[in-house]
Design a protein around this nucleic acid. Structure first.
Lengths: 133, 133
DNA sequence: CTCAGTGCAAACTATTTGCAGATTT
DNA sequence: AAATCTGCAAATAGTTTGCACTGAG
């Protein structure tokens, strides 16, 4: 649960950290910029600083509680790491992100890396699309 | 040839533009940050400004003479657009980028987008790896 | 009580923009 | 000559850092 994760990361259980982790866990959305989180928490009466949001997200990233994505458009996007790897479809019209996982592609990536003499450490696959109709 | 491309993009054939395009075409490397280009041109005696490098690269990107990538690490990376689409393996140890093209993955991407009700407009696939041995 | 953590403001990095003078056509 | 373009310096956007104070253990 929640606070345990923070403690296991070697971090003190502080208000800002609990607020951010709770937001990530309980929101219906899954993808947030640091600014999003800052805004949402302020709307809930928090007076957290933007710098703290960044600091905590970076710590959570290191602790693998959170994954940071570099989609188009400058801002980093953060999402709770719930274990299962997936890639993303970014909706170019609406502000929406869809997750998917495809074993065929996952496999090919490993093979392609190997064909070029590489061990695959990580990858980033983002599909940009627009809704049909 | 060279200068024609610039003219076709509706741009005047100026020294900075020719210098940049020539560098991109004639260098043995294929991937450059704006800073790289700025440095290399200065080493060749140019006194181009960094702002101009960015301006020209952005214009070239719009004209589809150049492709901009957002790999890890802050800086955008630019490469000459020579038509054939490809993706990249980024060497995490050495400062090296390898290009590849894989039809299986290309196809699956289109299918996956469709399965989710999307028309695939673009995609970004980056494999991060390290040399075996 | 101690040390990690915080908010704020200032710093930083990559990139963009305003402007007066320089170049291209 | 007209319009575009350039270099420079200043502005901007996103993120990080220094510091004195605050709060968790």
């Amino acid at each position: 649960m929640n606070k345990e994760d923070i403690k296991e990361a070697g971090l003190k259980i502080t208000q800002p950290r609990v607020q951010i982790l709770t937001l990530l866990e309980e929101s219906s959305k899954r993808h947030f910029t640091a600014e999003d989180i800052y805004q949402l928490l302020h709307q809930s009466g928090s007076n957290i600083g933007l710098a703290t949001v960044y600091r905590v997200l970076t710590q959570f990233e290191t602790a693998e509680l959170v994954i940071r994505h570099n989609f188009e458009g400058g801002q980093s996007v953060f999402e709770l790491n719930e274990g299962g790897h997936h890639d993303h479809i970014v909706d170019l019209k609406e502000n929406k992100i869809i997750e998917f996982h495809d074993e065929i592609i996952e496999q090919r990536q490993v093979e392609i890396a190997k064909e070029h003499g590489y061990r695959l450490i990580d990858h980033s696959l983002i599909l940009y699309g627009e809704k049909i109709e």
